[in-house]
Nucleic acid binder design. Structure first.
Lengths: 365, 365
DNA sequence: TTTTAGCACTCTGTCTCCCGGAGTGCTAAT
DNA sequence: ATTAGCACTCCGGGAGACAGAGTGCTAAAA
């Protein structure tokens, strides 16, 4: 229902608005781009675009601003795939040399890197470590005094530990027996698959001063089981948003900051299955404070079949094309690095697809 | 050199300025407090306070604002010890029921709690886990495929782990021998005390396919040794600052945010030995972006002889008295909880000193 | 029928001016 | 030493003026 010319006008408007943050008028537009038509014609076309809901006017006699719908059309059909410049990809690749020594700080570190890379607020999410992994080994290591360490090693090299205190230390032999029993029964199960029956049986085996340990192990396993399937989410770089005129009002900024920092709430983060990059523009977001912000999210493989998610939060007036390209490139690079850490595959197909990272998949509406 | 009356006038000015964020004039002051003197006299005294550097005027014919020096005197000598209300202490105690299941997220979680509790930006610092602890046990746990997990258990129940990949898996027996040798040689040492000699000797012992593991263990130990003595630092709740008029200018806010989030830099955080609460006001801070902010820091015991630090960052116009009280109470409570987790002492002396948390120790100048 | 030129109109943002209010410094009287 | 009084200063907010950018509409041109 939009003519070709209308589409290219919309595209031009979105792009200049993204660049300037100011309503764009017909004259300025016809000066910058060369449509071969006069500003009057542009005005007529813009009027039509307003009628169809792609643009709006802050007030009569102001320039035009894209609506959510306008951005959406832009993202879905209009915007160019962005070619990363050599500088871009060098920068991104460089950022990928991050240390992932500590798996449990992965989300935080990724968030920080990503926010620095994009100059927006970033979000990173990964399944909690125990999620869906089977128990490989349970161990108890006595330390100083009454302290012991409980260790649960899960699939893919994930280790969870917990410090406990015991009333009295079991003998080495008793501990050995205890561990043999426990491991015999629980290895191979997921924490969530440990039943009351298992625990009861183990409790009986836990004589000779291991009862105390058993109780705390039960707690620990329960906790691991409960964390299964949950996502851990970290945000970073909120401060970057203060640069953008949209967030110069500290109250707005504060609202969004507060929302992003409320780590308990993950509902707002889409977790795309296979779309390269999911974009949610303004009102498309379910959560209130995001309704005048935009969110871009992409998934990445964390190795071992686990998926993490990387995203960017910013004003609706975002450089979607460029950011989608960077986000997607970064996520793919990360997948390669993490996949490599686990599966050690050959990796040198990185160069081949640099151009076509830019196209974002439309959000299912 | 200040008369008693001047001191109480300064006190009144600081307190009303803290409450209102607006320059306080002689008339308003004489209306609110009852000094038994007229506003003219107040003016004379205020002029003297300006001459001595405790106050300043944004411009002629405006009210007065405390200088850093004024705040300093207030904090050192003028302010009342703040009595926590029952609500206060209930709230604080409640916050102490936080989960400290994951020692390695301690700083982040504490920072978040503290910022929520105070409505300022908060900072928490703790020594990196490996700092100064001896090796209790080293273990290697084979997982799926070529993945193994390297475990190093340190004193006080601190566990560090690392995922590694090996070219080929050693046999169970070889691994057993290898671990026996490694543990025999390294247990009881601090990671930083492991010498090249040790490693060389171990390398020779690492036959039967364990060479790969040994190399990665060496890396890991080196890393642990290097982290010794370093502090880990986390900030949280920067967004809270946006509420205060001092940070309504997004550029100011951004500068401070950026600074606080630069985790590499810890120079700016004082780590008091025994002072209840250290206060650094404005220009007393070494770091640029903090020079028009204030910082309150207190230490707390993390158990096992380790000390962490908790702090608050905000505008110089802070409610020092109240915050010092809360900070100190929180830190003491935390010390009790963490001390208990490690040493399990009796703890019920908590109630006794609620009144005198408020007095902050002067910064050594 | 589509495009364009022209024109009158509207709205914003900025600048200036103005004024009330709060506060000061000084002087003279208490 | 204190106070009352007074003239002066400065900020902040509101009213008015104005330039600039942009619009909608109409009538002419293609």
């Amino acid at each position: 229902m939009l003519t070709l010319r209308q589409r290219s006008i919309l595209k031009a408007i979105v792009e200049t608005y993204i660049a300037t943050a100011e309503p764009v008028g017909s004259k300025a537009l016809s000066g910058k781009y060369n449509f071969g038509v006069s500003s009057a014609t542009l005005r007529n076309e813009m009027a039509e675009l307003i009628a169809q809901g792609y643009l709006e006017q802050p007030h009569t006699s102001a320039g035009r601003v894209p609506t959510h719908q306008g951005y959406r059309l832009y993202v879905n059909e209009l915007m160019n795939g962005y070619s990363l410049t050599p500088d871009d990809s060098a920068e991104l690749k460089n950022a990928l040399r991050l240390k992932i020594a500590r798996y449990d700080k992965l989300t935080e570190e990724l968030g920080q890197v990503l926010s620095r890379l994009t100059n927006y607020a970033a979000v990173a999410a990964a399944p909690k470590l125990s999620s869906g992994r089977t128990i490989r080994r349970i161990d108890v290591i006595p330390c100083d005094g009454q302290i012991c360490v409980l260790l649960v090693v899960l699939g893919n090299g994930v280790v969870r530990d917990r410090m406990i205190t015991v009333a009295e230390k079991p003998s080495t032999a008793a501990l050995y027996d205890f561990l043999a029993t426990v491991n015999g029964m629980l290895v191979g199960l997921e924490p969530s698959a440990v039943t009351v029956g298992h625990l009861k049986a183990l409790n009986e085996a836990a004589r000779y001063g291991c009862g105390d340990i058993m109780a705390q192990l039960t707690d620990f396993l329960t906790e691991l089981a409960e964390a299964s399937g949950e996502m851990e989410i970290a945000t970073a770089g909120e401060g970057n948003l203060l640069s953008y005129p949209e967030y110069r009002d500290p109250d707005k900024a504060k609202e969004l900051f507060g929302f992003l920092n409320d780590a308990d709430n993950v509902e707002w983060l889409p977790m795309p299955g296979d779309a390269p990059v999911v974009v949610r523009i303004g009102a498309e977001n379910p959560a209130g404070p995001l309704q005048n912000a935009s969110l871009m999210v992409t998934g990445c493989s964390l190795g071992g079949g686990y998926r993490g998610y990387l995203g960017i939060v910013g004003p609706t007036r975002m450089d979607y094309s460029r950011l989608a390209a960077r986000l997607s490139f970064f996520a793919r690079g990360l997948s390669a690095v993490l996949g490599e850490a686990v599966n050690a595959p050959a990796e040198e197909d990185k160069e081949k697809g640099d151009e076509e990272h830019g196209r974002a998949r439309e959000e299912t509406t």
